[in-house]
Design a protein around this nucleic acid. Structure first.
Lengths: 219, 219
DNA sequence: GTCTATAGTACGATAGAC
DNA sequence: GTCTATCGTACTATAGAC
């Protein structure tokens, strides 16, 4: 009696998989339910049966990935904070970025989908759903960065976090292109090297002297 | 005989203005020709008369802005290179970013439109058109960064330029939100302060020690 | 739970009068 | 150069048989 009469869990996941890929690749508006059901090899009506609408499907696609990624972020961040290591930005950046690289090496399109949803696709109603998830993440990481950079003025820290997110998002969104351009590299190794370089770059940026501070700042 | 019988240049520009705003705000697929012609207060058929298709209109919208911005970038870069100043990343970053802030303070939606076209909207056929424009810019700025950072391995420089573009793009795309969040600041001043902070952040990131180098690197 | 069939709507593009 | 009217198509969503 493991799965009774239902092949539905399979249908539902096939729809989610196909939608995830197409939303990430072509965007929400450019993807029709017919394209999704064709790719998933299910009937057109199955989408509206399992999910109520195309937009609800988008939210389901998002929720399936965003939850685990954000949980992993908090897990890594908490592990660092409980380790008693000295305050530094690198472990915080690692906790923020690594989960995206991990999920990206499993399913290449996922980071691109999340980047899309961050500021581009999605109708107003869905935006609120996505933003809510990100706000707790932002709060926790903001506090962590604040501890590592106690002298940085609030506005400047806030903006620098935006720069970090931008560097991360663009890297995720163009990962496929970057793979193509890094001719003759082993695929898997590139990703982790990219993560390392990304952390190094953003750490240096975060640690740059604040422009509001004067040049001398020995406490 | 200044403008004979035609009110067309006005119609054409009104279409371009309306399309620019809507493409930037809602994306290409989510914007219909009917929304554009309604906003521009012109007839539906006018779009297909002045431009041949919706996609050709997108290219026209893009071309009107990308040309001047990229010319200004090269102008600023050339001026710096001819000034005889010592190699540094800050003036190169300024030449890359300032034109976007300038056009953004004239027409707020333009940077967001350009970010969209960079890696998200647009059909395959248009992608080639946009990419061509960017390739010369990339070549020139790559050479400039290379001069300022002679010891940085090629792959790492390339990736760091991607990080710079990401930080810039995200800042441009969320400028409106950032304005809202920087409560009680004078609007115009925020932008130029943001540019300054962005340059400071990315300059520090670019100058970070290369991970392939060992810790000691005194030449 | 899965299907077919279709309602109802919006779209891009064009023909042809003015 | 600008308009009205419309063709042909594609879409989301649903009703109802199985």
């Amino acid at each position: 009696m493991t799965d009774q009469n239902q092949q539905s869990p399979d249908t539902k996941n096939r729809i989610l998989d196909a939608a995830e890929l197409l939303f990430a690749e072509k965007g929400f508006d450019a993807t029709s339910l017919r394209m999704i059901t064709a790719a998933a090899q299910v009937n057109l009506a199955a989408v509206n049966y399992h999910f109520q609408s195309k937009e609800a499907l988008l939210q389901a696609v998002y929720a399936r990935r965003a939850g685990p990624v954000n949980e992993r972020r908090l897990e890594l961040l908490t592990a660092y904070e409980n380790s008693g290591r000295a305050p530094a930005v690198e472990p915080v950046l690692d906790a923020l970025m690594r989960p995206l690289f991990e999920v990206g090496s499993e399913r290449e399109c996922v980071p691109r989908l999340m980047v899309r949803l961050l500021y581009l696709d999605a109708k107003e109603t869905s935006r609120a759903v996505f933003a809510a998830q990100f706000q707790e993440i932002f709060r926790r990481f903001h506090a962590a960065f604040r501890r590592a950079l106690p002298h940085l003025p609030e506005q400047e820290l806030f903006l620098r976090m935006q720069f970090v997110v931008g560097a991360l998002a663009n890297t995720m969104a163009s990962m496929k292109n970057l793979h193509a351009l890094s001719q003759g590299q082993t695929e898997g190794a590139v990703s982790m090297k990219t993560l390392q370089w990304l952390i190094q770059f953003t750490a240096a940026g975060l640690r740059a002297p604040a422009s509001s501070e004067d040049s001398a700042c020995a406490s």
